[in-house]
Amino acid sequence: MENFTPLSAAIGGLLIGLSAALLWIGNGRIAGISGILGGLVSARPGNTAWRAAFLAGMIAAPLLYGLLGGTIPTPTVAATPGMVVAAGLLVGFGTRLGSGCTSGHAVCGLARLSRRSLAATALFMATAILTVFVTRHLLGA
């Protein structure tokens, strides 16, 4: 557990919680990233401006953090490009079919005490844990 970073994790979570609270109190919307992005490519698009503004803020965030003197963590991807494509397709299709991802179901859904979000969170967590077990420990990737 030498990589365990409880303090920065808790501070990061606090900011994510504030973000969700602000979007709800200010704009009456759930801070679910797959829903916000998916709404831009929906067959019936509506209210695209706030979605674009939210996503622009997200993308700008690490750059701003760097400008303010913070150390931006370096994202590392070990998977092959083919696996990245497959994973992206699964995440895109799955989050829209299942009405949410980590933010919409796990953060906002559990905060709203939604039974549906609890079921979704349990399922995608369990599936992801199983997938990592198979790829890392059974296939040895």
Partner: peptide
């Protein structure tokens, strides 16, 4: 059924690479 199937497909993709939608979009500028 859509919720269950969607959550399973999402979990599969999440576990393959470690990206879910928020982090993937936030990392675009890096």
């Amino acid at each position: 059924r859509p919720l269950v199937l969607g959550a399973i497909l999402f979990g599969l993709g999440w576990g393959l690479v470690g990206f879910c939608p928020g982090p993937a979009l936030t990392a675009l500028g890096l």
